[in-house]
């Protein structure tokens, strides 16, 4: 399949899943022909539309960050979730909630980005020491566990049951009850993060030949490292601070697209952004349709889907991993 065709197809899929996300729910609402002032129009304008837009922005960010992290670390198992970047962003955001800053989404996002940047910087330092694929995944496990422990510590110290419930519900990862204010916070940072990640394409291609060859091809590894840290940190940090941890999007999407887009890392970034948006919008529409009074949390649904996929990847690639 030609690249232009693939991107057109993915763009079409993004529009389709976006429409689905507007329509799907306990009540199906067609997004056209709504009379102003009706409850349906209100639900559409204040709930469905911002939620679908959030799904679009965050899915694109998570998908692109997965493609870039895999290219940068030359490791098909890399992903913001697997490597603990999301968990550290979550810890940052929980710290903000713990400190009673939940009324200011911008501050929660700033704390989330701080956690993500710190985790990315640690991983990039390890990357500079050319650790093996296994080393990275292990480092990610350590970073995740540390973040989980610190988060649990904050939960156990929560000042009152309301703060506790707020933190726990948020941690499960969802787009539920997020609206325009969250969208305005996350979009600029996600756009900036995506932009920075897009700049890394050529360096990622050269890194396919190893660091020495990449440097000989004129790649500035230090600049590339900072682009990856800043792009992932800002984008994933902001996304997690709004939705909680929604894992595995960045892991699954590049894998599904490689057979069609080819393995060149730069050729995967834009398709993975579109693919991430499709996956998240689709998953979020499906959790809204889940039976029962409440709804399945998006983060839990993605983990239930993503963890077996990760295991399957490990199984299939076991002879490739040193």
């Amino acid at each position: 399949m030609r690249r232009a065709q693939l991107i057109a197809l993915l763009a079409l899929g993004t529009v389709a899943t976006f429409l689905l996300s507007l329509m799907a729910g306990k009540v199906w609402i067609a997004p056209w022909g709504l009379a102003a002032g009706t409850p349906e129009a209100l639900v559409m304008a204040e709930l469905r539309l911002p939620r679908a837009l959030l799904g679009l922005v965050i899915g694109a960010m998570l998908g692109a960050s997965g493609a870039v992290l895999q290219g940068y670390l030359r490791n098909p198992l890399a992903d913001a979730g697997v490597l603990g970047v999301s968990a550290n962003a979550a810890f940052g955001a929980v710290l903000a909630l713990f400190l009673g800053l939940s009324a200011t989404p911008l501050l929660v996002a700033a704390f989330g980005m701080g956690g993500a940047v710190a985790a990315m910087a640690l991983l990039a330092l390890l990357a500079g020491r050319s650790a093996s694929a296994t080393g990275f995944v292990l480092a990610g496990v350590v970073l995740s566990s540390l973040a989980a422990a610190l988060t649990a510590l904050l939960i156990s110290l929560a000042p009152n049951p309301f703060a506790l419930e707020e933190i726990v519900t948020w941690l499960m990862g969802a787009l539920t009850d997020r609206g325009w204010p969250q969208l305005w916070v996350v979009t600029p940072f996600a756009a900036l993060g995506l932009g920075l990640l897009m700049l890394t394409g050529r360096a990622l291609d050269a890194l396919a030949l190893g660091e020495a060859a990449a440097r000989s091809l004129g790649v500035d590894l230090r600049a590339t490292r900072w682009l990856v840290i800043a792009g992932t940190g800002l984008g994933v940090g902001a996304a997690v601070s709004v939705t909680g941890v929604v894992g595995f999007v960045g892991l699954i999407v590049p894998h599904l697209l490689r057979p069609f887009a080819g393995e060149r890392p730069s050729a995967l970034i834009l398709p993975s952004a579109l693919g991430g948006a499709i996956l998240l919008l689709l998953a979020d529409s499906l959790v809204r349709l889940s039976p029962g009074a409440g709804e399945l949390k998006l983060g839990i649904a993605m983990a239930l889907l993503g963890a077996p996929f990760f295991l399957w990847l490990l199984w299939r690639k076991r002879e490739l991993i040193p």
Partner: peptide, 28 residues
Amino acid sequence: ARRIGYLPQGGEVHWNLRVHELVALGRL
């Protein structure tokens, strides 16, 4: 990078690129 071509030892290749894609990296 334009003046000096450098071929490291070991033949490191990380992704399953097509041959023409890999050769094209030399033009970066």
